[in-house]
Design a protein around this nucleic acid. Structure first.
Length: 448
DNA sequence: TCTGGGGTCCTAGGACCC
DNA sequence: TCTGGGGTCCTAGGACCC
């Protein structure tokens, strides 16, 4: 999907269409998650500190994310992919591999000659893109090729709103001139190592040979990069696997200096982590504490238990013990708690499992409530820019901003024209948080 | 300008075992 | 007396991806 989070916001909020939109953490230490193409023209991109994005593009709409809406639309798109093949491997909410040969068009693809096969793949890709547009109003890009590596590279070339097919046999010709950074698995550190060895393009990697790359990058990485450099990639498309770890972390607006405060935060994080673990119906054996200090240095401490557990007391206690052992001199910027070595629940009966699945559906609300419990006196509602709301008189809208006891709301929906703005007291009882609306008007609905 | 949150995979050393 | 070889598990750190 193209600029997925920002595109969902523009589709949901007519007044933002054609304007720079930046989705990400809005606090002092936030980073950009997604910038719309309009914002990218100002130099804003993913992972950039939000403070820098504000300087580059001060007139953009700055929104915190609405994951409910992103998940809704992701599910629609993933459903369309599954019509093409049961072998769908999502990489994130907005990206997936599809093995076309394993699906209903597989036999036709196998029989087709070169030219016919390409026409069929192109038609399937364009039909898919049209279906995505019809069902969500969003644009996606398709990369088609004979391997995951080349399909990924093709999809990057296709963005935004396009389709690129790389013909079998053309792999090395396409890859050769590209910078090494274009290969998945080569990040800033590996790029530096290769640059110091005089290797700047993929063709140079291929020429260097496997032995030299293993020498530079280690056994597994070197061998993998060499295979890719000569256009070989036989990794299969594997449908969604179970998670191998669950973790929760928080960066604080101001570094924590106080030991007791650190311990309290660790306990709260561990409790949140356990809620997510239980909601997923899993238990784990290894508890991991993560600490990022004032200077951004990061350490982890872990303890492996004798058997897997989802017991809050055990996991919170373990995390706390680990936290008691770390030096917090200078202050703590981030704390995290994770559980790894996950196991499925098998000793439980079906009744208990059904209860838990029901609990899982309410896990997010439970987490939100738990957060509120931490500050009962602060009954003042928090309004986030971008958040969906409903007003008793004016109907559905979204929070444009809030401050000094006021909240500004724009009243518009995905299927209305650009809406008007009104301002309310933050505790106005007529104003309530609401669910994300679908981007396409539901069948049979008529208002608007 | 000052760096999120959720993950995966790999490496390396030490303990331990046969 | 002067110290094998291989495997697994645990811990810590780091690179990378979206």
């Amino acid at each position: 999907m193209d600029a997925f989070f920002a595109a969902v916001e523009q589709a949901a909020k007519p007044s933002l269409r054609g304007k720079p939109v930046i989705v990400g953490g809005l606090g002092g230490r936030g980073v950009v998650s997604t910038a719309s193409y309009e914002a990218r023209r100002f130099g804003v991109h993913s992972a950039m500190p939000m403070a820098q994005a504000r300087r580059l593009c001060p007139n953009a709409a700055f929104l915190s994310g609405r994951f409910e809406a992103y998940r809704q639309n992701s599910e629609i798109v993933m459903g369309l992919l599954r019509q093409l093949s049961p072998l769908v491997q999502p990489l994130s909410l907005d990206e997936a591999f599809v093995d076309l040969e394993a699906g209903p068009y597989g036999p036709a693809l196998a029989e087709a000659d070169h030219a016919t096969g390409e026409r069929l793949v192109t038609a399937l890709g364009e039909d898919l893109r049209a279906d995505i547009e019809r069902r969500t109003g969003l644009t996606g890009s398709v990369g088609a090729a004979g391997s995951k590596l080349m399909a990924k590279i093709a999809s990057e070339r296709a963005k935004p709103d396009g389709l690129v097919l790389i013909e079998p046999g053309q792999e090395r010709a396409v890859l050769g001139p590209m910078p090494v950074r274009a290969l998945p698995g080569i990040g800033p550190a590996t790029e530096q190592v290769l640059r110091r060895a005089g290797l700047n393009t993929v063709a140079e990697l291929a020429e260097a040979g496997e032995a030299e790359l293993v020498q530079l990058l280690g056994r597994a990485h070197g061998a993998g990069i060499f295979q890719m450099s000569i256009g070989l990639d036989d990794r299969p498309v594997v449908p969604d696997q179970d998670a191998k770890s669950v973790s929760v972390e928080d960066t604080f607006e101001v570094d924590l200096a106080d030991r007791d405060r650190v311990l309290r935060e660790v306990e709260a994080l561990a409790a949140r982590c356990v809620r997510r673990l239980r909601a997923a119906g899993r238990s784990g054996r290894t508890v991991v504490l993560k600490v990022r200090r004032f200077d951004f240095s990061t350490l982890t401490r872990s303890e492996t238990l004798r058997g897997p557990t989802d017991d809050e007391t055990v996991i919170v206690g373990t995390a706390r013990r680990l936290a008691e052992q770390v030096d917090i001199t200078g202050g703590v910027r981030l704390l995290g708690v994770g559980v790894a070595q996950l196991a499925d629940y098998t000793q439980e009966d079906l009744f208990a499992q059904a209860l838990r699945e029901e609990a899982a559906e309410h896990a997010e609300e439970a987490e939100a409530e738990a957060v509120e419990e931490e500050a009962p006196e602060a009954a003042v509602r928090r309004w986030h820019p971008g958040q969906d709301v409903e007003h008793a008189e004016f109907g559905p809208g979204w929070v444009q901003g809030s401050g000094v006891g006021r909240v500004t709301v724009r009243f518009e929906t995905p299927w209305s024209g650009p809406g008007r703005v009104r301002t309310f007291a933050v505790d106005d009882p007529a104003l309530e948080p609401s669910r994300a609306l679908p981007l396409r008007r539901p069948e049979g609905s008529s208002d608007g």
